[in-house]
Design a protein around this nucleic acid. Structure first.
Lengths: 343, 343
DNA sequence: TTGAAAGCGATACCAG
DNA sequence: CTGGTATCGCTTTCAA
């Protein structure tokens, strides 16, 4: 097999200069249509394809590559996010360079630096839990590389982002539980110190408030977990604690579906019937939720759509100098058997 | 902010030639130790980092990038595979370029061609269902780019691979069901026309044979599905068919956990008790399996380990001219509540 | 032990 | 309209 054709080959075959060939191939003006035609024909014949590596060097930025970093690929939500990104990227002929932070801000920084070094044309980041914006993300922005933040927010961040309206989601979950007739609604929460945990707690409280229900801090149980297993365990523990109260809750809004799994386990072991004794609403509409028994009511975050939009934002940001793209998706409440009392 | 230091900067600062700097930085011989020291020092001071783009162009192959393609990232097994790959890649300072085939052989080809064009230093592929080896993979091998096939096999393929010993897994599943006391074991299978389906069917039959049980083709129900949803639906349908037989099975070895979910749904709707009336064993140890009710017995494939090894194989293949690396992982039977009759 | 110059493949400026 | 030349950052002969 002979090597790939390059500009020089075409030029020599046609007895023109490399410059002319380049011009013809790049649809420049200032070129004789006839010359252009013959060059195009020859390019086709030799099956010419531009060499990305050379182009990249020239532009000192990799061509058509976005760096994507998420905490964990195997977390269902992120994998759907990724699916959306890859869909759009593929469509626009972009490559996806993938990294995981594993919820370590140091590793996140390393990956992002590597991305920079590789010369990616953009970065899509679903930040890890205690991600350091100034240290990790700012340097990329300073390089004038478009960045789109996904899933969660940084404090005071006002660049491109695509995320979930966690506040509204939590608010809806609580409202739904109230409407279902539950009276003592607890929230097994994630840390208040990052946007997702914070917003959902806020939405939970606002939900109670607007329905004239008291806010009992005993009903707010804060958990810390980084994956499904830990989530389930924490959910179990939190549930145990809640049911040790003098007056246990009769419903739980769980900050994630993973936590809800722990709740289900606790309920099953202690003969607490869902939804009769305990209403449960999760968050994420993870794959598992609909197969739980009873199926778990939850909030769909539509990761795929978010991913597609994130890529789209990046793409538009590339050519829109300075314009900023932002979108908050309102999660969609999916009511299943875990939160509706039989008549 | 000033731009990145390059060789020239170091050279000028020290009044030596670019060549010398390059030599010093690349640990070449033929260089005065003193010169070398000062160059190294200056490089550090200027925070010099080699420009990958330039290096790549020079070597006409991207530096430190592997292309990874899987059918679906959001499929749990593939996401764990990916996790393993990324772990190892990160450790060895490699980038991961990711693509999805979505079980379309055309898309797979497109992605692989793109990888080639990008000049990846290697390709790790979990082939899609009807992947065309000659068309999709062979061209890459011809370019002398190391390829590692993951998860499943191509017919007569004898290059690098890492996969699951599907035959043994199926065999163990059936043996376990026999030992649990089930008498009429059915297999809801995947198409015989690709390695995974084929091997599991073979293992199923061999399991029956070795335990002196008859092979009833009515008990072999073949499904076609590309994702979890379809899997569950197909499982449901297949189950329905099996239970329409004059003598329905009392156990099902399901080719994937997804299929088993459909079986669970059918069982629940028809008051068939698992494991009392029906033993079930799945395949994959997907996240869901342990949270089903009862928890599903299944086979753990250890995607993470496979991924790590796949990368390792690629890495070794890079420098081992012609040597071939192969490994079949024996899946590990995980016995849970779905396949053990109470005493 | 060091340096000048060619070249990887492509683009852009400037002359003609 | 066309072509020569410099350049992107680095490695690698070849000479000195």
């Amino acid at each position: 097999m002979n090597r790939r054709a390059k500009l020089k080959d075409i030029a020599e075959a046609l007895n023109v200069s490399i410059t002319t060939v380049s011009r013809a191939l790049n649809n420049k003006t200032d070129i004789n249509p006839t010359t252009k035609q013959s060059i195009l024909a020859m390019a086709k014949e030799l099956n010419y394809k531009p060499n990305n590596l050379a182009l990249s060097l020239r532009k000192s930025s990799t061509l058509n590559v976005v760096g994507v970093i998420v905490p964990h690929v195997k977390h269902y939500f992120f994998s759907t996010l990724l699916e959306g990104i890859m869909n759009s990227a593929h469509e626009m002929n972009y490559f996806v360079l993938l990294g995981e932070s594993l919820h370590s801000t140091d590793r996140e920084k390393k990956v992002l630096d590597d991305f920079s070094e590789h010369g990616v044309s953009g970065v899509l980041i679903a930040p890890c839990k205690h991600s350091d914006f100034n240290k990790n993300v700012l340097p990329i922005i300073h390089r004038r590389t478009p960045v789109v933040v996904m899933d969660r927010m940084y404090d005071n961040y006002n660049g491109n982002f695509v995320n979930t309206n966690d506040f509204k989601g939590a608010f809806e979950a609580v409202s739904h539980l109230v409407q279902s007739g539950y009276k003592r609604i607890a929230h097994i929460a994630s840390s208040d110190s990052w946007s997702i945990g914070h917003e959902r707690i806020k939405g939970y409280k606002e939900g109670l408030r607007q329905h004239g229900m008291p806010i009992d801090e005993n009903y707010l149980s804060i958990c810390n977990f980084n994956n499904k297993e830990e989530g389930a365990e924490e959910g179990y523990r939190a549930c145990h604690k809640l049911f040790s109260l003098k007056e246990p809750p009769d419903a739980i809004f769980s900050v994630t579906d993973d936590i809800a799994i722990g709740v289900y386990q606790y309920a099953q072991e202690n003969n607490i019937s869902i939804p009769n004794d305990l209403g449960v609403v999760g968050f994420s509409n993870s794959e598992i939720s609909k197969y739980l028994n009873p199926p778990l009511s939850t909030l769909e975050q539509n990761g795929k759509k978010m991913g597609e939009m994130a890529f789209d934002f990046f793409f538009r940001a590339l050519n829109a100098n300075g314009q900023i793209f932002q979108k908050s998706f309102k999660p969609e409440l999916i009511i299943r058997g875990s939160s509706v009392l039989p008549k």
